[in-house]
Design a protein around this nucleic acid. Structure first.
Lengths: 335, 335
DNA sequence: TTGAAAGCGCTAACAG
DNA sequence: CTGTTAGCGCTTTCAA
């Protein structure tokens, strides 16, 4: 690296052999005598030779594929379980996964950084679509949750409208009457950016809840603490709420903790429902009911879009490819 | 791409300009007229030109660094929080992180696959050290938890001897007398491999517990269910146990759940202590006491080793560089 | 503002 | 078994 990188040429010269012989030794190829191989390996080690992965990938015309993955956070199991699923899905195809998290920086910057290393980028984006596509420099972007409207951008949409309508219906069947929502105000620490915009989950809630319930919304930090805090504020402002829908499971866990602290029985006094379907929710007391997002399906669809796009003969940017996954209620005991 | 990849040359020909002009347009360089740039960009899009990241990295002599990260599982927050910390630590230096999980395959295979893409690989390895170093083909390996004994391998060691000795002492001060251990038998699904080997945590436990306690060990699946199952078996075999140390927090959560099912009060009837220090433990009822591993410190040390090694002028393989992190008890309420 | 030449470091294909 | 010859696809000089 930098000045005077040790190249295959240096090793060849030092060992008194040809470049090709060095290649054969380094890559454990067969057509070489044990002695020569050992000699080469030793001198390579002595010189500190480290092959350039760029040169070797280029020369070998390998088309090792790697997909970038931009997550909202690595501290929320929802995202990491999605990563786990994506890894499971792409590993058999021999693809690599490059991780990035929005905690590290801006959407667009991350995409720009990854675009030089990845053949496609899937992720949770919040930035401007055009800016994202520009930053991607031709690398296809697969956006999860949000729809895609510009060429070069594709999507695995989560249909929260259908899901939340169904959920509220089932909750009413179970006796729920006065709903409230704890909405996410974005990742912790990002407050003050003043950039709060209603999420699709909130919009779906407001659309399908009765009009009184639609007004009972508090915005809180997207974290366990935020959920606890949110519940405290929701109950203070709207004492009569009997059912609370929480932006995600992590926040719902905080809300449950807060309920316990306040002596509110769940689900007796208050039903709590999260969103995500984390397996950890089953360990709560009581186990958390949730609107479960099938992460395996999301990963499969995303990988499938990537595969389709990369194998396509026609020139990109391709018109948006969109798949839909609909979250489903997972009834445990908190509601 | 397979046959007939579209290269910069094709674009140049189609646009009637030189390769260099295409480069300038694609990379947003200044020395080009707006018209030409637009023309080039358009024909590039029409042809579906996608630059080869290998060629461009090679030619530009970029030394974009990427570190591979091999985790035990992406479904255990311990590992993903470690990943989060590592990302935080390396992102400012502009390094990328390539993820892999042992759930996808063998240690050695993963290292072999990553070695062509990463400049260093840090991870939780269980395979044979020599085999790992061979698979790494000169790429430095930084092993977490286990010590490193062969050149090319380095380590961030977790000092469980010191940690568990201290932990048991503090537990005795709190009145604990009859200890038991729920040990990991490895990742779920891997049973039958018959490859169980006592972990360093178990060995430390057996060394520092009284001899009766040292015998009270059950081996269970490394999962929430495994922890639940382990506690059931431990209590059946050794009814008098008043304190149980669990291999990790995830398993400890399962154990707590089982205790609740069985009507065993925690910590009144049974103290439960996990290992890892997951923040999620704080949401349990009661909050989980644990032997906390400072993941930020592990990530920092690992990144530091990587930085040192890659900037070193002397030839690798370097003699092992070893740093140590000592876990510390984090008292919440379960013990 | 544009183009021509000269590699980047490595491996495939072919000889010997 | 080993060496030679051509590139891989792009970016950097340096001229024009």
């Amino acid at each position: 690296m930098g000045v005077g990188r040790i190249t295959i040429e240096d090793v060849a010269a030092a060992a008194g052999v040809s470049r090709q012989t060095v290649t054969r030794a380094m890559n454990g190829m067969p057509e070489i005598s044990a002695r020569t191989r050992e000699l080469v390996l030793r001198t390579a080690a002595e010189l500190g030779y480290r092959p350039s992965r760029f040169a070797s990938n280029l020369a070998a015309r390998r088309k090792s594929r790697s997909v970038g993955l931009v997550l909202g956070s690595l501290r929320n199991p929802y995202y990491t379980e999605l990563a786990a699923e994506l890894l499971d899905v792409v590993a058999p195809r021999g693809w690599h996964v490059l991780m990035a998290s929005r905690e590290q920086g801006d959407d667009v910057e991350l995409v720009a950084a990854l675009s030089g290393q990845a053949d496609a980028i899937v992720g949770y984006f919040t930035g401007d679509e055009t800016a994202l596509v520009t930053a991607a420099r031709g690398v296809p972007l697969i956006q999860v949750e949000r729809a895609a409207t510009v060429p070069g951008l594709h999507a695995v949409v989560l249909d929260f409208d259908a899901a939340i309508e169904a959920l509220l219906g089932e909750l009413r069947d179970r006796g729920a009457r006065r709903f409230g929502l704890i909405e996410s105000g974005g990742p912790p620490g990002e407050e003050g950016a003043g950039a709060y915009r209603p999420t699709r989950r909130r919009r779906a809630y407001e659309r399908f809840a009765d009009s009184d319930s639609a007004g009972r919304v508090v915005v809180a930090d997207e974290s366990i603490r935020g959920g606890a805090d949110g519940l405290a504020r929701l109950r203070a402002a709207h004492p009569g709420v009997d059912t609370v829908l929480v932006f995600n499971d992590l926040m719902a866990m905080g809300a449950m903790q807060q309920a316990q602290l306040d002596g509110v029985a769940v689900p007796g006094d208050l039903r709590v429902v999260g969103v995500d379907g984390l397996s950890l929710g089953a360990v709560m007391t009581p186990p958390l009911s949730t609107l479960s997002i099938d992460r395996r399906a999301v990963a499969t669809e995303a990988a499938d879009i990537v595969g389709t796009l990369l194998d396509r003969a026609e020139p990109p940017p391709h018109p948006p490819v969109v798949r839909t996954v609909t979250p489903r209620p997972l009834w445990r005991e908190s509601a």
